[in-house]
Design a protein around this nucleic acid. Sequence first.
RNA 1: UGCCCGAUGGUGUAACGGUAGCACAGCAGACUCUGAAUCUGUUUGUCAUGGUUCAAAUCCAUGUCGGGCAGCCA
Length: 565
Amino acid sequence: MSDSTKEIPAAPSDFIRDIVAKHVAEKKYPHIHTRFPPEPNGYLHIGHAKSICLNFGIAREFGGICNLRMDDTNPTKEDVEYVDSIRADVNWLIAGWADKNLGLNNSKPFYASDYFDQIYEFAIALIKKGKAFVCDLSPDETDEYRRQGKASPFRDRSVEENLDLFARMKAGEFPDGKRSLRAKIQPDSPNIWLRDPLIYRIKHAEHHQTGAKWCIYPMYDFAHCLSDYIEGITHSICTLEFEVHRPLYDWILESLDLPRALPKQYEFARLALGYTVMSKRKLMQLVNEKLVTGWDDPRMPTISGIRRRGVTPEALRNFAYNIGITKYNGITDVAVLEHAIREDLNKRALRRLAVLRPLKIVIANFPEGKIEELDAVNNPEDENAGKRKIPFSRELFIERDDFQEIPPPKFFRLKPGGEVRLKYAYIIKCDEVVKDASGKIVELRCTADLDSKSGGATAGRKVKGTIHWVSAKHAIDVEVRLYDRLFTVPEPDADGDFKKFLNPHSLEVITAKLEPSLKDAKSNERYQFERLAYFALDKDSSPEKIIFNRTITLKDAWAKEAQKI
RNA sequence: UGCCCGAUGGUGUAACGGUAGCACAGCAGACUCUGAAUCUGUUUGUCAUGGUUCAAAUCCAUGUCGGGCAGCCA
């Protein structure tokens, strides 16, 4: 099987795609048009990635377009910093996959705020139809009336008075909260969102896009369906909590007697992932309280954090594909994400030798000063990745974990008197354990079977274990950041304070010994330090100070076995 | 409390009235110059009770459990 056919999974199927496919078959719309509408009030997280993959995936599979739209109707919570991060994250996730299906407005995202003039006109049209009114009730009174299903006493104002008052709201004559524009639907509807919902509120606040132009802003329910209509969206896909809003979405559009086909809203379950939190509020808390280094901290479930950690967009997309789309609110096992990451990295990562926690060994029968250049395979999964040379000498470092003075059963690494193969090099035997005054092992004296090198006379000799190593005088000392799960429990936000479940060991910074070729590591490459984990250069890495992030460990069957003992 | 939505192995998902399948995880084994990868085998499931039907995970009713909404947030 060729790689290209292997890498493109069969088009996924789910209840939303089934609906779209049916509409395509019926030729219900000239073309399919979706949208991804984040509010720029925080960074995108992996839950948004699910939505991006759904919306752009549909556009891609059905030859349509997916608009990137900032849902920016609440200026007091939003910021351009977030606009910029959202653009970067979306572009990164869809690059080379659905970038041709990305709908932009003069190479910029769409903004709901671009439509404020039109939305205002739609509000006036609604007033003229007698379907909206200006209400003088205070916020508290409004709540109370709606709870009781009671009509506002201002419900029956004349169209003229409503028009006048709404114009004066816009002109800035009233303070925040003094009046609002409400849809006139049904004060005692069983659906709260049909109980004459607010569609415009007064907010004397500058907007990051429209500046000081407005002091009234449309509510989500009013702006969203109209933005969809204005952009010609056919399928407006959102998460389950908007399900109860759907009748309002339809009511607004139908009440306006619009000439073109109306968009329809469909809802799916948002992603919940084990061992993390997903709400923007909680993520913001972690950032503000400096419990992480920022929105793009590699431990964060944000797209920027995941990217910085070293995960590729392909892995994230495969994950999104694997979890499916339903209306069931479940919690996805992180193992599914981790599997998608490992599967992707296994195919692409360049293999390298690196020792995280060094233990010095001396090969007594290897001449002092002699250096051998050994051939090493860059990627056994990809022949085209070629080979490289790694230096071998008398003094080496091996992983401390790879030696046990008193080995447990089934330990087939190095032990006193035991043999092990040094990857790409010789079979060695441990002759002597050297300790310091405190009893700590500081060095191992070994001898090598000098014929056992690859291609040598005894190269075929079987020993149970193979371990990695670096040449002591050639290895480079590099900062390596070892990341682990941010939380210690599968559902940190199940109840109470999620912060008490923060994993104190979610980051460990060490100086590791790497094979010299890693001096030239590239930020767009992925590396596997053999037998350990996958790594990528951190965004703060420079030639002067190289920094590696551990993206994810290799599966470790020995750790599991050792636990049983 | 009212309204809305949902329920298939441990987890996530498929089966669209006709053989309950897939992935992850788990377990056992093979292979291995990565205890990785790969390969083989395997444990575990239709929320409950009624009804419709030759036939129900699927349709209907009731119940149970879970989620959402009840901001001038989105």
